[in-house]
Design a protein around this nucleic acid. Structure first.
Lengths: 131, 131
DNA sequence: CAGGATCCAGTCCGATACTG
DNA sequence: CAGTATCGGACTGGATCCTG
């Protein structure tokens, strides 16, 4: 993906595995930071849930984005998808142990945000006032 | 910003402050998850540094993106910008206490990524092979 | 030296419509 | 029910040029 940056970093004397880590970290943070992932993961944290139920529990998300987000999470092994051969069809999504582990790590950052949200809001206010 | 989602969430019975928190968390995560923030912050963690030095230490970043990233970080009060009235001009950027605090929180997630990167890589491999 | 302004390509995401 | 396909607008990020 960003092989060019990695090559640059390595060329400048950075250890290759460190450079690769930067790529991966950015990748994981980008996933976690995207518009819907956190909401989907926190909703899944309550237990297995079906596509439509998930859709209803997350107001504002489109089917397309829910589908995309679930695909991305599944690709990384953070959630599982279980389809039951029934009529009408039933599909359940659930966090994997890895997914729960990430959710816990994210929770750390979520709590940081809650703790400091007033600071950030005030900083923005001050900054915008100055301009 | 996403007032619509917040309104939706509140309408569905979610506590207003919780709905606002989701917005802010997503906001902070999006900032942290963008392409250059983590590299800029970790570079700043070594101590105050000038614009050009920062530019050289982060291979691949454009002036435009460095400038944008610094603005965003400054707006949230995560870094400071100090201009010295000299010729040639000198400007130094440094983390604020809040910035260092966020860096520590992010570090948690970075370590999670390092710990589990092999798992994720394997999951992706397996997933892509299946297709 | 430290950026701001402009242009452009690629990507993201929502709305809508359709299917096994 | 659980999605996929397609389209169009908004946004992102890089290259380049310009300035106090």
């Amino acid at each position: 993906m960003d092989a060019a940056l990695r090559a640059d970093l390595v060329a400048r004397g950075m250890a290759p595995d460190c450079a690769e880590t930067i790529e991966l970290v950015r990748d994981v943070l980008a996933r976690v930071g995207d518009k819907w992932t956190v909401l989907v993961v926190t909703t899944l944290a309550s237990g297995p849930i079906r596509f439509t139920a998930l859709h209803e529990r997350i107001p504002g998300i489109s089917q397309r984005m829910l589908s995309h987000t679930l695909h991305a999470l599944r690709r990384d092994g953070l959630i599982t998808r279980t389809a039951y051969a029934e009529v009408p069809p039933r599909v359940e999504y659930a966090l994997t142990p890895l997914g729960r582990s990430l959710a816990a790590a994210v929770d750390h950052l979520v709590r940081w945000t809650q703790t400091h949200q007033a600071d950030i809001a005030r900083n923005r206010q001050d900054y915008d006032d100055d301009k």
